[in-house]
Design a protein around this nucleic acid. Sequence first.
DNA 1: GTGAAAGCGCTAACAC
DNA 2: GTGTTAGCGCTTTCAC
Lengths: 371, 371
Amino acid sequence: MPTMADVAKRAGVAISTVSYALSGVRPVSPETKQRIQQAIEELGYHPNLLARGLAGKPTRVVALLFPAAPRGLSQVQLEFVSGAAEVASRTDHALLLWTSAGEDQQVLRLAMEGLVEGLILMEIRLCDPRVVTLRKLGYPFTMIGHCQDNEGLSFVDFDFEEAARVSVRHLAELGHRYIACLTYSPAPLEMGYGPAVRSKRGFETALEENNLNGLACVYDGSPQQAYQVMWQVLAAEPSTSAVIVTSDLAYPSIVQATTDFGRRIPHDLSLVAFMSQRGAELATPPLSYVEIPAHEMGRIGAELLIERLEGKEQQPTQLILPAQLAVRSSSGPPGAHRSVIQVHSQQGITGSVESSTKVSRTIYRKKGESP
Amino acid sequence: MPTMADVAKRAGVAISTVSYALSGVRPVSPETKQRIQQAIEELGYHPNLLARGLAGKPTRVVALLFPAAPRGLSQVQLEFVSGAAEVASRTDHALLLWTSAGEDQQVLRLAMEGLVEGLILMEIRLCDPRVVTLRKLGYPFTMIGHCQDNEGLSFVDFDFEEAARVSVRHLAELGHRYIACLTYSPAPLEMGYGPAVRSKRGFETALEENNLNGLACVYDGSPQQAYQVMWQVLAAEPSTSAVIVTSDLAYPSIVQATTDFGRRIPHDLSLVAFMSQRGAELATPPLSYVEIPAHEMGRIGAELLIERLEGKEQQPTQLILPAQLAVRSSSGPPGAHRSVIQVHSQQGITGSVESSTKVSRTIYRKKGESP
DNA sequence: GTGAAAGCGCTAACAC
DNA sequence: GTGTTAGCGCTTTCAC
């Protein structure tokens, strides 16, 4: 494997000249540059990233910390990955996938090993130990999700609370009086997994607002468990005529359990699921769903980090993408158009709309925090 | 950020002693080790990966090269990623995601930059320029997919040819006489994208074997294009009563086009799709599908590479996972059980079954290449 | 059992 | 416009 020294020797110049010719930090005469270029090609030289990094240059490597998934990641989580990967690739960064098992510990390790310049965190809890650690260290990171206290942090999230409210409202309008809401949380809810807590809260608020009865269930396990929970829900409260499923992981279980229980969808039971568009398209009978713009979220998470690393944006950016209830278009190719029934609104926070590459982003900043 | 020198100073020993205490390559007295350990903790020291790598130690970083996906990756491709990530995490490796745009060029760059120890390639063509390059370099890599000439290479693939044959046979048994097969290929078929070529061949062979008529279509674009192609197929040949879809990316388009055309599934048209289990579960009416064990393939791809890197396995391993036609179980939680209708067989290659963590692997080696 | 010192391949002063 | 050289943080001889 040829080194810079090899190139220098072959071109008959000093090592530093090669370095400067490549970086352009210092002028190099055209002839020299030419000879160096030739030597590089003849030798098939490629700069060594390790050495470059050790000498203090940015490595252009960012990491995505994702949860250890015993049963594989959900569609939504995978789309976070693909979104982040897209941005990394576009900005000439490498994306390191890291499974965070030991929480806190692992985070530190990655952060300190010098290879990775910044972190994207997924599966954020309301009080997340990783966030506490990284913040203390002043290490660059962004979150897909957000905590209770996000002072000075950048993140992109989806408005799960509103998503649940929109779903309930929709079901109420359809005439349902008793609604169940099934939420996935990777650990006891007490640990405060954001989407679970917020969906549940939104669901409960909406029940009150619409003067309905219902039941919120949280399960933290396998598809099998989701199946059982759903079955129990149907058995316990026969008047349940609509269900909201907040995780695409559980969706198949819910459908199956319902069918096995002897109810037909959508005749005997209405279903609203939180899903990525891709996931919803696979569900053959047109499905009412709240689209989680997962790919987009992955993209933005990475963009925020990289902007920060490049020093472009020092102000923290906090995005909560709006929830919309969508129904699969009844004809035409998938993805072509969807009818939007209800759009987002949220209290206590000022919202302004800004155009983005693919969707309109709604940016919420706490008052007085304007850029 | 504390360095080894800081630790050494604090512990009152030489740098090398710290190094040896950590690596265990040379005995260090218990007391010294103790003092060093304490210094490490007090300082919050973490070894620098870059320096370690530069000094000749393995970096424990492997990369997964995945295709630039204008419209996001398919479910199957994403599962390759999650499978590989799982293994990397388990074996204490980091997984670098790299989007290969400039083919050949990029591959080289990664390989030479010194950071990455080995590559996993996806989207393999029958004659793949990346493979040619890497092989010439003697750089460690494995493939998810395989080429025409795989002499000395390790790979895991899925038996697309048999998958198509099994599907046709199944449809023939159901009484269908005219079958269409829709295949996705990211580029003109002439470039020889493995799964496309092999599915098509399997389909054509099976038509002959079963004395049927049919049509094989390849589309290389968007869901919209898939929709149009499907529509044209139905319009051109009204007797088409069954369709095989070899990519989960196209599945929604196909279903939608069929419905819009005025045919009902499965009443007027039978569908068999190649999908991951997760994808199939999302399709609500029980779907006949050939399960592409994508997560498993990603896992094996990574395992083969890492085994090779650790020097455990120098013999190339070539796996072609068998194709099975599955039908969604009509009750019980998803993933619990599936009925297997047909299993794999292939000519010209000797097969032997070996147990793996999750599925039974069938290993095919060319004759005379036995380990 | 421990230290001193020579690299690994690169960048960035500091000379000239 | 170019060469010389001191690090970056670690591993690993070679000495004691």
